[in-house]
Simulated scan of single mutants.
Amino acid sequence: MTTGAEPGDDQSDPSLNAIMSERRRLINLGYRLLGSLADAEDVVQETYARWYAMSAREQQAIESPGAWLMTVASRICLSLLGSARVRRETYVGEWIPEPLPEPTDWITGGSGVVGTDPAERVTLDESVTMAFLVVLDAMTPAERVAFVLHDVFRYPFGEVAEIVGRTPAACRQLASSARRRIRTAQTPAGPIAGQAGIVRQFKTAWQAKDIDALIGLLDPDAIATADGGGLAVTHLHPIVGSEQIARAYAEIARVTGDRTTFLECTVNGLPGLVARQDGKLATVFAFEIAGDRIRHIWAVRNPEKLRPWRIW
């Protein structure tokens, strides 16, 4: 493909820094819409490829390059969300959004080097907690894009409408429907320190195979969901109920024994756990905690989703 320029080719171009400064915003958009950092990175690359495929005259005719990049990235994500629903039909087991560690722990380019470029990071806030992303994933593509653009990135509905291909009124309805889903799913979360304490107690009880202690830390209607993607052994269907989860996890601890160690960490901005088995990264656990009980556990074992965690 012939391009008008490549990133970094002409540092004297005053517009280049402005264009590349949008990268972090685009990564943040793509991750929230797709639930995958790898897919978000692909979207950003495709967006920039389309920009640099234009002639200098075409680029100069664009009044707001940043808005153009966001529009193109949003439309690519909208298309991918539609095809993702088809791909999920053949996915082995449950699909969970890709978990993210603290930004300082990120890996760049698969090289095993800790990432330092802020442009490569997702801002960790309430809109990227695992619980939030799971609710987003249950929305229709148009609903998800309309909500994220308006409620997270503060786009007016007129601009959202141009991206989604609906009327402003229709986009307002889409965002309103999405908001209702979020409110219905939301649970009152306590302070981070308190959540970290509950995760620590869970880790201790799990290592001790203390079923009663595990039950006491779980909501009676708790759900444990795992994602192996057919590439790692795990339960294919959600486990429902505190006693069922406690017994299943105690059995996992019995089988893996001393081969598994657990480390406390931050997963998508909230307290979580990393499991290492035989010295290698095996699983990342995210938790939803309501009050002083664990309401949901998400266990991501698919190695393709653990790329940002390689230093663990």
Rank of each mutant, 00 (worst) to 15 (best):
S176P: 03
A56I: 15
G229L: 08
N17D: 05
I289E: 09
L218T: 06
T47G: 08
L81F: 08
I96C: 02
A18M: 02
R57H: 11
E162A: 10
N302F: 01
L78I: 10
R154W: 00
A208V: 02
G272N: 01
D125A: 05
A142V: 11
T2K: 12
G216C: 08
F147H: 13
L34E: 09
I311W: 12
G257T: 07
Q60I: 01
L217W: 11
R301C: 06
P271Y: 10
L16V: 01
D151L: 10
E159S: 11
E126W: 09
F285Q: 08
D292E: 15
S127P: 08
W206Y: 05
G8F: 01
W298Q: 03
T140A: 14
M54R: 12
A208P: 04
A67N: 10
S64V: 09
Q277C: 13
D42I: 09
D210H: 03
Q186H: 10
G190M: 03
L29S: 01
K209L: 01
A53V: 11
F287C: 04
V92Q: 14
G241M: 15
C77M: 00
C77L: 05
A161Q: 04
A146W: 05
S55I: 08
E63H: 05
F147S: 00
L80Q: 12
R24E: 14
G216Y: 10
A224S: 14
V92M: 13
N302G: 02
V86I: 14
I245E: 04
A61M: 03
T260C: 13
W309N: 02
R276A: 09
T104W: 12
L69R: 12
D227G: 02
D227Q: 00
E243F: 07
T108V: 15
T261N: 13
R32P: 11
S242R: 12
A253K: 06
P303C: 07
V135D: 05
A73N: 07
A226E: 14
A169L: 11
G82R: 14
A131L: 02
I192K: 06
E6F: 15
A40P: 08
G165Q: 04
K280Q: 15
D221S: 11
E120W: 11
A49K: 06
P14T: 01
R259P: 03
D151Y: 07
P271C: 05
D10N: 14
S242G: 06
A208C: 00
Y31V: 15
D227F: 05
Y155A: 05
E41W: 07
K280Y: 13
L34D: 08
F132K: 13
L263P: 01
E251V: 05
D258C: 04
E22C: 08
